[in-house]
Design a protein around this nucleic acid. Structure first.
Length: 457
RNA sequence: GGCGACGUAGCCAAGUGGUUAAGGCGAGAGUCUGCAAAACUCUUAUUCGGCGGUUCGAUUCCGCCCGUCGCCUCCA
C-alpha cells in the first residue's frame, strides 16, 4: 500500500522493517474529557491499523498518556483533587470513549510517570553528546546543534524566528531551544534527577516511550497535524540525536483537523463537543462513517446536519446485511470480488476511505438488486460484513434495552395490526404503525410478513 | 509577517491532462404496497472559486487574484 509521509511530502510504498508493524500514535494529555477531534484522529489510526491487519500484517500499536503536565496540575487544583486522581478518572473515561467508538485498544499504553528513569537516561545521553544543556535546574535541547531541525515541518530556524512570538528567555542559548526537564516549584509533583527535583518537558516522553517499546526505528508515527510542530519536530531532534540513527520513523502520518464553528476544535478555546455528547446523539457507526467519508488528510467540519446523513447511510448498509435470502430460488449469485478489489485499491492508495466506501455502497446496491432478482447473495453479504468490519463498523441492529424489553409487546401489536389489515381496517392498522413510529419502532410490511426495527437513532 | 492546506451539484465528499466528473444525504418521478416503509429504476454539476498562461486539449500543470482554514504558543 502507499501511504503519505509528512517528512518527505510524498506518498510512498509502505513496507515494515520487520515482522511486525511498529506504530506509535501520540495519545492525549488527560486533563479534560476527550472531544470529537480526538475521536476523529483515533478513528483514522484505528482504521489504518485494521486495514494493515486485514492485509496480513501484525501491528504493534503503542499509544502514550502524557500524565504529568502543567495543565493537569492546574486542572487538578481547580477541581480540588490530585493530579493522580484526575488522571485516573480521565484515562478510564478515555478508554471507555474509545471502546464506544469501536477503536481497538493499543497494545501498550505507557505513561510518562512510569518512564521517568528512561527519560532521565535519555536526557543524560543528550547532554553527553552536546545536544542539551542544564540551566538553573532546567535542561534544554540545543536546536542549533541538530542539523535538519525543521525538516518535518519544512521550516528553518530563521523562518521560525521571523514574526514568531518568542519570548526572550535568558536561560536559553537560543530562543527556539525547548525544555527537556523542568525544575519543579514547591508543592508540584516532582522526581529526582541529576539536575534536581523536576519533571519531564512535553516532547521528551514520546521519544523515550517510543524508543523503549518500539525501538529506534518506527514504521509509523502518527498524530494530528497540529503535532507536526513543535511536538514531532522535537521528537525527531531528540531521538535521532540520541540514537544517531535516522529516520526515527519511516512514515509520519498526520490527520487533518476537525473544525467547529469555523475554527479548530481545541481544548484551550473551550469550543468542543465531547465524545460523550456526540455518542449520546449518534451511533459509533454513524460517527465513523462521518469521519471516513472524508479523507483522513483533509480537514473536516463538525456539523450535526452532516452527521445525520450518515445515520441513514449506516442503516442502508445494515439493511442489506439483514436481508434473508435463504429461499431465493435463483442459482446465480452476486459476485462480490470486483467490489472487494475496488475496496482494496482505494485503501491501498493512502487509505482512501471515501472511495472504499463508495465501493461498499455499490456492493450494497448490488446485494439489494440481487435479492430482488432472487439471486444468491450470501457470499456478497459476507464480503460486505467483512469489509465494513475493516472500517470498524459494527452494523448491528439497534437494540436499546428499552426496546428489547418491549419487544414482546411490539410483536403483540404487530400481530393485532395484521389481523386488522386482514380485515381491511386500514385506519386502525395505520394508527398502530404511526404511533409505533413515533416511539422509534418502524413496521415494514413485506412479502414475507411484517418486520419491525428500532429506528430511533 | 513566514510556512502550508483547501475552494467540485441543495448539503457532505472522492477523483482524473482527453470516451459517461465516484459515493452518501436530500429532492423529484416511476415500480412495488391497501396506503406506507424498505428496496429497485430514472432524474438532480455541458461543469469543477475568478482571471490569465502552458497544451492539439485542463476541473486536473503553472502564475496571479478572491475566499476559507491551519501551523508558527498548549492542542489529536
Amino acid at each position: 500500500m502507499k501511504l503519505y509521509d509528512s517528512l518527505t511530502g510524498e506518498k510512498r510504498d509502505f513496507a515494515p522493517q520487520g515482522d511486525e508493524v511498529k506504530m506509535y500514535v501520540c495519545g492525549v494529555t488527560p486533563y479534560s474529557s476527550a472531544h470529537v477531534g480526538h475521536a476523529m484522529s483515533y478513528v483514522y489510526f484505528d482504521t489504518l491499523r485494521r486495514y494493515l491487519e486485514f492485509l496480513g500484517y501484525t501491528v504493534k500499536h503503542v499509544q502514550n498518556f502524557t500524565d504529568i503536565d502543567d495543565k493537569i496540575i492546574t486542572a487538578a487544583d481547580k477541581q480540588k483533587t490530585s493530579p493522580v486522581m484526575l488522571v485516573e478518572e480521565l484515562v478510564e473515561e478515555y478508554l471507555m470513549d474509545m471502546a464506544n467508538l469501536n477503536i481497538q485498544p493499543a497494545h501498550v499504553y505507557p505513561r510518562v510517570t512510569d518512564e521517568i528513569t528512561k527519560i532521565v537516561e535519555m536526557i543524560e545521553g543528550l547532554i553527553e553528546k552536546g545536544f542539551a544543556y542544564e540551566s538553573e535546574g532546567d535542561v534544554y535541547y540545543r536546536v542549533t546543534k541538530f542539523q535538519g531541525y525543521g525538516k518535518l515541518s519544512h521550516r528553518t530556524l530563521d523562518g521560525m524566528m521571523a514574526g514568531a512570538r518568542v519570548e526572550p528567555n535568558l536561560q536559553k542559548d537560543h530562543a527556539m531551544d525547548f525544555t527537556l526537564w523542568k525544575a519543579s516549584k514547591l508543592g508540584e509533583p516532582s522526581w529526582d534527577s541529576p539536575w534536581g527535583k523536576g519533571r519531564p518537558g512535553w516532547h521528551i516522553e514520546c521519544s523515550a516511550m517510543a524508543l523503549h517499546y518500539l525501538g529506534p526505528h518506527l514504521d509509523i508515527h502518527g498524530g494530528g497535524q497540529d503535532l507536526v510542530f513543535p511536538h514531532h519536530e522535537n521528537e525527531i531532534a531528540q531521538t535521532e540525536a540520541f540514537t544517531g540513527e535516522a529516520p526515527f520513523a519511516d512514515h509520519w502520518v498526520h490527520n487533518g483537523l476537525l473544525q467547529i464553528d469555523e475554527g479548530k476544535m481545541s481544548k484551550s478555546f473551550g469550543k468542543l463537543v465531547t465524545v460523550r455528547d456526540a455518542l449520546a446523539k449518534f451511533s459509533s457507526d454513524t460517527m465513523r462513517l462521518f469521519f471516513l467519508n472524508s479523507h483522513y488528510h483533509s480537514p473536516l467540519a463538525y456539523a450535526d446536519e452532516s452527521i445525520e446523513g450518515q445515520q441513514r447511510a449506516a442503516e442502508r448498509l445494515l439493511t442489506a446485511l439483514e436481508l434473508d435470502a435463504s429461499d431465493n430460488a435463483g442459482s446465480e449469485a452476486v459476485d462480490p470480488e470486483p467490489f472487494r478489489q475496488r475496496f482494496i485499491t482505494a485503501m491501498d492508495d493512502d487509505l482512501n476511505t471515501p472511495q472504499a466506501l463508495a465501493a461498499l455502497f455499490d456492493l450494497t446496491r448490488e446485494i439489494n438488486r440481487g435479492n430482488d432478482e432472487k439471486k444468491q447473495i450470501g457470499s456478497a453479504q459476507d464480503t460486505l460484513r467483512e469489509l465494513t468490519g475493516v472500517l470498524g463498523l459494527r452494523l448491528y441492529p439497534q437494540e436499546e434495552e428499552s426496546t428489547q424489553s418491549a419487544s414482546p409487546f411490539v410483536e403483540l401489536l404487530a400481530e393485532i395490526r395484521q389481523e386488522l389489515r386482514d380485515a381491511k381496517q386500514w385506519e386502525l392498522a395505520d394508527r398502530i404503525r404511526d404511533r409505533l413510529q413515533a416511539l422509534g419502532v418502524s413496521l415494514e410490511d413485506g412479502a414475507g410478513g411484517t418486520k419491525w426495527r428500532n429506528r430511533s437513532s
